[in-house]
Design a protein around this nucleic acid. Structure first.
Lengths: 193, 193
DNA sequence: TCATTTTCTTATCATACATCAATTTTTCTA
DNA sequence: TAGAAAAATTGATGTATGATAAGAAAATGA
């Protein structure tokens, strides 16, 4: 278990006891492509570290369209954060689907909170992760406000080349907030210039 | 100073020593409408609690258009979080302008970190704030992906009636990602139905 | 309170992106 | 590796919102 813990928490030096507590809190999950980590309406009380594979958090609107909030690959964390951290607690508004066979490590919010209280190194790690994620999502809002679909696409493939390799174009379209047809036209435009 | 500290930290019970540490970290700032708390390119190393008034974080794009990331009124915190928490640290990408005479309390990130390390109650408070803010901004991304301009406007005035009272319609338009003319049409449509 | 500035509205026209409907290309699987 | 399914592309057309320009209404401040 130790190498995984070091991978998850960025090579923090832990004591034997700390390693044990962390190990107790983590649960390994294996998912096949097409399986769900979470479905709409389910209770949300945990977050998940991706060791391998690719997952997608998406919302389905009244007309059946998918809207992607997040992709996650090796090194990322995934959950329904609107439910996990929001006011109307605990019921998921989204689906989290495995889109490439994956191995993850699940930790409940409660266990994570306890680890933060017991182990200051974990507390700092968690705050740092939260802060970075917050900045990244603020940036995304700003980009959605300021950039055209074409600019957002170019931005996406430059910023997340590893994700591009793992997802379909229609996934990217739903992340960018455009249709798959529009993305196709944008791609053609980029290719022929 | 004590009543302000209780206001800022949601009535947490602090010891005399704790109150002193917190008090030392907070700096009162008064701003008149039109003054800036932050301008693009400035160093960012603090966040600010709004005791009174209203402020706006916005980005100006290449064509001179304003794009609003955040409003803040009494009880909210404001900063350039992309700079404060992001990877390309410390230089502001945004402006923070006072749009209604305001009183705020500034705390540096460093002092806040120290308070978190010294006072577990503050640490928990900070994490909780971060988590809630993260959820709120995720929700905003989802709404931008799924809702029409009209729906986003209705949503905004229902969710933030206190902010609506403090800002101009062109501010709201720049928050929603539409032009002031479009917002005007939407308002007319809503009024005549 | 009046004059000036700021904000909001209205109209016309332009455009980015959506929708619908095929068709082609790629990927999967038996 | 053939056949089926999934994904991507293309074309024609529609629509929400943008751009520009002008005027009306509201807010400000001397």
């Amino acid at each position: 278990m130790e190498p995984i813990i070091l991978e998850i928490f960025g090579d923090i030096a832990f004591t034997k006891n700390e390693l044990q507590s962390i190990s107790d809190a983590l649960k390994k999950i294996e998912l096949k492509k097409g399986e769900f980590l979470l479905t709409e309406g389910a209770e949300v009380n945990s977050t998940h570290y991706i060791h391998d594979g690719c997952l997608q958090t998406y919302y389905i609107d009244y007309s059946g369209k998918e809207h992607t909030l997040q992709f996650a690959i090796k090194g990322w964390w995934i959950s329904d954060y609107i439910a996990l951290y929001g006011k109307e607690k605990s019921k998921s508004v989204s689906f989290i689907e495995c889109i490439k066979d994956a191995t993850l490590f699940k930790i409940s919010k409660k266990d994570y909170d306890n680890l933060c209280n017991e182990i200051p190194k974990i507390n700092r790690f968690y705050i740092h992760k939260l802060e970075s994620a917050f900045a990244a999502f603020q940036k995304r809002i700003l980009e959605n406000l300021t950039l055209s679909a074409k600019e957002r696409y170019i931005n996406f493939i430059n910023t997340y080349p590893d994700i591009e390799r793992n997802v379909k174009n229609y996934h990217i379209a739903s992340f960018l907030g455009i249709t798959t047809e529009s993305l196709s036209r944008i791609r053609k435009e980029i290719a022929t210039q």
